[in-house]
């Protein structure tokens, strides 16, 4: 009897914790939707900010975020897929090199995002960009300052572990006998990877890419001083332009805006857009990953 009561109490307490977490998630979603929905319309999505950013839309922020994540994906996905192939197919798990690479990937996954921002500033802008300027444009300031390319590359480093982990997991679900079938037909290791392993892990590569894009679209700290601006009257024309981003827009509008209350509807609507974007991307990725795992069983 006594034991049963204890059992019930423990089960309830732990269950309540689950409910509290879910409640918070649902409230964030609900409040953002309630606050942002009335202002979410086509004009908001397709117009530039107006009247000192107190009116108008977030079009340049959407475009900026899109371009940034695309460049980021172009850089991070091949890099990540190849590293995953190395870890899953070539690396001898006991070798020091493989262990070090694994540790490096884990380190990249836990380094605070602001550090990536500092690195982008010190390395891409202060080192690569500055040197590019003195080499190509005789010192005229072009690459040695924040821009969308450096921001995207900084973000690519941050999202690299996301890609690596997803792709490696997918590669490892490809049954051993598929590889053996290919090798027994006289395929070389590389042919086997190209024709059996990579096609078999396409969904994993897709999952990794979506997760990386979703992560990159939402992160703000790495781009605070590597390329994001709070207002730009035009869309980025070249890689050396600065850009507006959804996350940065939310941050600026809610903390630095001259009239925070007046812009509240814009803030909520922007948050809703960003949340919908990352949320739906994540939902797709989680479903895909779930399917891969199920297939593996």
């Amino acid at each position: 009897m006594n034991r049963n009561i204890k059992d019930t109490i423990v089960e309830s307490i732990t269950g309540i914790c689950v409910l509290v977490i879910i409640f918070i998630i649902v409230s964030i979603l609900a409040i953002t939707i309630i606050g942002g929905w009335p202002n979410l319309n086509w004009a908001f999505l397709s117009e530039f900010p107006k009247e000192g950013m107190t009116k108008g839309g977030i079009f340049p922020a959407i475009v900026g975020t899109a371009i940034m994540t695309i460049i980021m994906a172009i850089a991070a996905v091949p890099f990540g897929v190849i590293t995953a192939i190395y870890l899953a197919e070539y690396a001898n798990e006991k070798s020091v090199l493989a262990k070090t690479i694994r540790f490096a990937v884990k380190t990249l996954a836990v380094v605070p995002s602001i550090i990536f921002g500092l690195f982008g500033l010190g390395f891409f802008i202060g080192f690569i960009g500055k040197n590019m300027d003195s080499l190509f444009s005789g010192g005229e300031l072009r690459w040695g300052q924040p821009n969308i390319l450096w921001a995207s590359l900084t973000m690519a480093l941050l999202t690299l572990p996301v890609v690596i982990v997803s792709v490696e997991e997918a590669i490892r679900t490809i049954p051993r006998d598929m590889r053996e079938a290919s090798l027994a037909l006289g395929a070389t290791k590389w042919q086997t990877i190209r024709k059996v392993v990579i096609p078999g892990s396409i969904s994993g590569i897709l999952t990794g890419t979506i997760l990386a894009v979703s992560r990159g679209a939402g992160e703000v700290a790495p781009i605070l001083f590597t390329g994001a601006v709070y207002f730009s009257s035009h869309l980025p024309h070249s890689l050396s332009d600065q850009f507006m981003s959804l996350g940065y827009h939310i941050y600026i509008m809610s903390t630095q805006s001259s009239n925070v209350d007046a812009t509240q509807p814009i803030q909520f609507a922007t948050t809703l857009v960003l949340l919908l974007l990352t949320f739906s991307l994540n939902a797709v990725a989680v479903t895909l990953r779930y399917r891969i795992r199920k297939k593996a069983k």
Binding site: P175, E180, A181, G200
Partner: peptide
Amino acid sequence: VGMIFQKSNPFA
């Protein structure tokens, strides 16, 4: 030297 496996393993 070709090989046929215990469990049939055609590619997808």
